[in-house]
Each structure stands twice: as structure tokens, then as C-alpha cells.
């Protein structure tokens, strides 16, 4: 896996990639004297684990339908007017049920980072930028990717950004991403 690091680590810290491949072994030699067994090296095996879940977005499903139609849907409390950029159908301030509202498609970078590593699933996408977006008139922030800038030096807090949508929806929160708009 290619690692994109901004710094060059010293030579002594370089090492070959750890692999998850190995050799199939069908039997292990055992000493005749059982007393020797406590000095035996551990047996390490590979255990694959793959599951396909039937995962429902439940009451949050309209958010994903919104993304596939080029809309950012949040929720607003009918009573206290608290507005959530990431939907929640029960207001965390007063407990009332909230209603769906469209939130603005442009905002500002509240904070950011550039990830040079990540969870295994996302390693191939590194480096990538994560941002929390703040919107006028919305009380909470929104986590998304920022596309365009090369490194963290090209991003600043307060920078104007606007939403863009994938043409072919994947029904994931990454169906929306942001680009600089200034």
C-alpha cells in the first residue's frame, strides 16, 4: 500500500510491510516429553471475518434520499427551533419530535484536518481532508470531505465552501462533499 507521508522517516525506522498472507500448515511437531510444552511457541492462525449486514437508515432515510436528489436535509425542532445539520428526529434540547427542513448548501469551514492515514477501509483514499461545516441559521455542524485543496496549508478556518453531490448516489453520507467557493 502506498503511504503518502509529508516527511521522510529516518532510515533505521524503515521496515517491510506487514502482510496478512501466510503458509498453510497441516501438522505441528510435538516433543515426546510433555514437560517441554510450556516452552512451546504460540500457534497463530488467520481467522477471516466477513459479514453483509441488512442495515436500515430507519427514520433518517430521507436524508440519504435528499442527497441523491441534490438536497441537504436537516431537521428543526418545532418548539425550540433548534436546527440540526445532521438529522435527528427527536430534539436533543427539548425532546420534541423534529421536522425535516432543507439546510443551506454553502457554509464555512469550522475546523479541518488532513488525514495521511486512516482506518483500513479508507487508507487507499489518503490523504484526504475532513471538515466540519458551519451554516448560517443552523445550530449544529456537518462532517464532510473537502475536495480540491492539496494540503492543510491550503485550508483555513472560516473559508467559504459549497456542497457538491455525486451524480450516482451511493446512499452514503459521502454522496455530498464540499469544495472551496472563494
Amino acid at each position: 500500500m502506498a503511504r503518502k507521508n509529508p516527511t521522510n522517516p529516518p532510515a533505521e525506522s524503515k521496515k517491510v510491510e506487514e502482510l496478512m498472507t501466510g503458509t498453510t500448515v497441516f501438522n505441528i511437531p510435538l516433543p515426546a516429553d510433555l514437560k517441554a510444552l510450556k516452552g512451546m511457541s504460540p500457534i497463530v492462525i488467520k481467522q477471516p471475518y466477513h459479514i453483509d449486514y441488512i442495515h436500515s437508515y430507519g427514520q433518517d432515510s430521507p436524508f440519504f434520499a435528499g442527497l441523491s436528489n441534490g438536497k441537504l436535509l436537516g431537521t428543526m425542532c418545532g418548539k425550540c427551533k433548534y436546527t440540526y445539520a445532521t438529522p435527528r428526529l427527536a430534539c436533543a434540547q427539548c425532546g420534541r419530535e423534529t421536522k425535516w427542513v432543507e439546510i443551506p448548501q454553502s457554509g464555512r469551514v469550522h475546523t479541518f484536518t488532513t488525514c495521511y492515514f486512516g482506518g483500513e477501509e479508507f487508507l487507499k483514499e489518503t490523504p484526504f481532508h475532513l471538515i466540519l461545516v458551519e451554516f448560517e441559521g443552523v445550530d449544529t455542524l456537518f462532517l464532510s470531505r473537502l475536495i480540491g485543496p492539496v494540503g492543510p496549508e491550503d485550508i483555513r478556518i472560516g473559508m467559504k465552501v459549497k456542497a457538491k453531490f455525486r451524480r450516482n448516489s451511493q446512499l452514503k453520507p459521502t454522496d455530498v462533499y464540499f469544495v472551496p467557493s472563494e
Binding site: T111, F112, G118, L130, L143, S144, R145, K172, P173
Partner: peptide
């Protein structure tokens, strides 16, 4: 796992965002 993890789930990334705001 609906809204955060798929965007690039990585705790070091989350903490980096927090500290960038702290620095700001």
C-alpha cells in the same frame, strides 16, 4: 456508522479537527 464513520472514520482525524479549532 450512519453519518461519521463512512466519511473517513479515523479517530486521529477527529482529534486533529478538535485541536485545530482549539488552536484557532
Amino acid at each position: 456508522v450512519n453519518f461519521d464513520y463512512p466519511v473517513g472514520g479515523f479517530y486521529s482525524g477527529y482529534y486533529a479537527m478538535m485541536v485545530n479549532r482549539h488552536m484557532h
